[in-house]
């Protein structure tokens, strides 16, 4: 199995209040860009990133969502197939922290307790304006079995690490899933998240995660729209 690297494709969704720097994180990570000006994200924007992790080839399909309130109703559509979720808040903005907690509850209830989540306190370069202490956030994350880190898209500190550690968690969850129930693999095809139209058969593995949650999601998608 380890002779040729396995290829994993994960869908990662960034969620959080507006203006916390979700897009900045993604652009810093995928394109090494940072812009001081603030452009509001249009609904949901998509980027990919490939890298190797533990002898596996990982491809992240990153969906950056708009934080603005008028888009919130549509957000469940984006994280329904997500392999992992990045929850972003601004360490200088308590409202965004509160909002992040709401997101977490929502995701846990919809995607189940196992989906890997990383909580990111962005704008760590603005330490002197900090309103949310690292310890509080860390303990909250631990209590909700989520990963936690602080990052600064501007300084490019902790950005790569956050995606890599999330990818690690997703890989682990994926392998657990594979070990626990090989049978569920067949069921996942109907809802497979496979962008390349079957070019890489291993891609489907990333899907079983979401497929298990299918009935619940179907309900929520109806109720939210």
């Amino acid at each position: 199995m380890s002779a040729t690297p396995d290829k994993f494709t994960f869908k990662v969704v960034l969620l959080g209040e507006g203006c916390v720097g979700k897009t900045s994180l993604v652009l810093q990570y995928c394109k090494s860009q940072f812009r001081d000006s603030h452009d509001v994200t249009l609904q949901a924007s998509f980027l990919t990133k490939r890298f190797n992790l533990k002898n596996n080839r990982v491809e992240l399909h990153i969906w950056d969502t708009a934080g603005q309130e008028r888009f919130h109703a549509l957000v469940p559509m984006y994280y329904r197939d997500a392999g992992g979720v990045v929850l972003v808040y601004d360490i200088t903005d308590p409202v965004s922290y509160q909002r992040m907690q709401n997101w977490l509850m929502q995701i846990r209830s919809l995607l189940g307790p196992k989906v890997p989540i990383i909580i990111v306190g962005n704008k760590s370069d603005l330490d002197r304006n900090r309103k949310i202490s690292k310890e509080d956030a860390q303990s909250y994350a631990t209590a909700n079995s989520a990963l936690f880190t602080e990052a600064s898209a501007k300084m490019n500190s902790g950005v790569e690490q956050l995606f890599v550690s999330l990818a690690g968690a997703m890989l682990k969850a994926e392998e657990e899933k594979r070990a626990s129930g090989a049978a569920s693999g067949g069921a996942g095809t109907s809802n497979s998240y496979n962008i390349h139209g079957g070019a890489a058969p291993t891609v489907r593995r990333g899907v079983t995660l979401a497929a298990d949650e299918d009935p619940a999601e179907a309900d929520t998608s109806k109720s939210c729209c």
Binding site: T23, L27, V40, L42, A44, S45, F46, L47, L74, Y78
Partner: peptide, 14 residues
């Protein structure tokens, strides 16, 4: 034509 579209591979918007 919105410029923040150009950073991304794709955008999904209602």
């Amino acid at each position: 034509a919105s410029k923040n579209l150009q950073h991304f591979i794709g955008v999904w918007l209602p």
